[in-house]
Amino acid sequence: MEQFLGIDYASWWFMIIGAVFTGYAILDGFDLGAGALHLFFNKEESRRIALNAIGPVWDGNEVWLVIGGGALFAGFPKVYAAVFSAFYVPFMLFLTVLIFRAISIEFRSKEPMLWWRKMWDVAYCLSSSAIAFLLGVVLGNILLGIPVDRDGNFTGDLLYFLNPYALMVGITTLALFMMHGAIYLVMKTEDRLYAKLTIMVRDTTIFFSISVLLLSFYTLLYVPHLTNNIRQNPWMFLIPVIMVFNIAHITRQVAKRKYLLAFISSCITVSLLLIIVAIELYPNMLISTLDPAYSITVHNGSSSSKSLGIMLTVAAIGVPLVVAYTTFVFWTFKGKVKLDETSY
């Protein structure tokens, strides 16, 4: 297989897809976290401010999910086919709540009736929480492995996905996004809502810290294959160590009320967690629990070298443009939220 800088094209594409999904987790993560916290705000003004904090960016953030899905299809069609057929029901549920979340944001302020707004508030909160949880459940099952045969066909049932490990990953993902969202909201608010969010940031940070600690213990005790690469390459142990110190840094900055630094550390935590996921999986992309020989790897599930080479060139041009646009949007809408007649 052709190489670039000593790394084969398939591995480069694996890293690019990982980077795109990391961008999605960082960007849409705080949107989803803000939505999961929405019902904790009691006042109408507080809920409107929280909605308008993500209003200019939430739909653009979801573009990264579309890019990730397209990149997976282009770079690893076998993986795409196996994953989307195996997780058909969870993905349909995911798509449904994704649609409900979008409509909730757009429809909530279209009518002044109290029941109308409360209905969409509940839909927004539940759909945001469900998306975060489902993303974690899917990730947990991919890490654990699923029963796929030599042709990539899923041989299990829907209940197979609801295993303890996947549920724990789902809860941890929700906790991570809630912390991420609370830190983002506290940077965008002021006065009494700011004071309330300082407490919520502390509580969600504790929730995430406990969740990731329990998940780590469970992984070490009951899912030993996920630590093989780190055991074989001791230098990789630095990555989880850095992650632990980074989480501690979040709590330190939260205590000092330096929320921008806490948010940067939260973004780094998301990145490090997904880097650990990539290390745990590589070179596998979909582990078969029926027979390791049936697993789909970076190399046996990729497109041709020529296709990967062409797409790497396209990605080298396109991804920086998306990053530049995203940066421009955030820069344009920086600062505290101020409500006006155009607000949600």
Results as ranks from 00 to 15, higher is better:
Tyr9Arg: 13
Ser11Cys: 06
Trp12Gly: 00
Ile16His: 07
Ile17Ala: 10
Ile17Gly: 04
Val20Tyr: 03
Thr22Ile: 12
Leu27Trp: 11
Leu37Arg: 10
His38Cys: 03
Leu39Lys: 09
Lys43Ala: 07
Glu45Thr: 09
Arg47Ile: 03
Asn52Phe: 02
Val57Leu: 08
Asp59Met: 05
Glu62Thr: 04
Gly69His: 05
Ala71Trp: 10
Leu72Arg: 11
Ala74Thr: 15
Ala82Ser: 15
Tyr88Asp: 04
Val89Ala: 09
Phe94Leu: 15
Val97Tyr: 12
Arg101Val: 06
Ala102Phe: 01
Phe107Cys: 02
Ser109Ala: 12
Glu111Leu: 14
Met113Phe: 08
Leu114Ser: 04
Trp116Gly: 05
Trp116Lys: 12
Arg117Asp: 02
Asp121Cys: 00
Ala123Phe: 15
Cys125Ile: 00
Ser128Tyr: 00
Ile142Gln: 14
Arg150Glu: 15
Gly152Ala: 11
Tyr165Pro: 04
Thr172Cys: 14
His180Lys: 15
His180Gly: 09
Gly181Asn: 10
Ala182Tyr: 07
Leu185Arg: 10
Tyr194Cys: 06
Arg202Phe: 07
Thr205Pro: 01
Leu213Thr: 15
Leu213Tyr: 09
Leu213Glu: 02
Leu215Asn: 11
Phe217Ile: 15
Leu220Thr: 11
His225Gly: 05
Thr227Trp: 06
Asn228Ala: 09
Asn229Ala: 13
Phe237Ile: 11
Ile239Thr: 02
Ile242Arg: 04
Met243Gly: 08
Ala248Glu: 06
His249Pro: 00
Gln253Met: 13
Val254Ala: 13
Arg257Gly: 00
Leu260Ile: 08
Ile264Arg: 14
Tyr282Val: 07
Met285Gln: 15
Ile287Trp: 10
Leu290Gln: 14
Pro292Thr: 13
Thr297Asp: 01
Ser303Lys: 01
Ser305Cys: 02
Ile310Ser: 00
Met311Glu: 03
Ala315Phe: 10
Ala316Pro: 03
Ile317Gln: 04
Val319Phe: 05
Leu321Tyr: 01
Val322His: 00
Thr326Val: 02
Thr327Gly: 13
Gly335Ala: 07
Val337Gly: 07
Lys338Gly: 00
Asp340Gln: 12
Glu341Ala: 12
Glu341Phe: 13
Tyr344His: 12
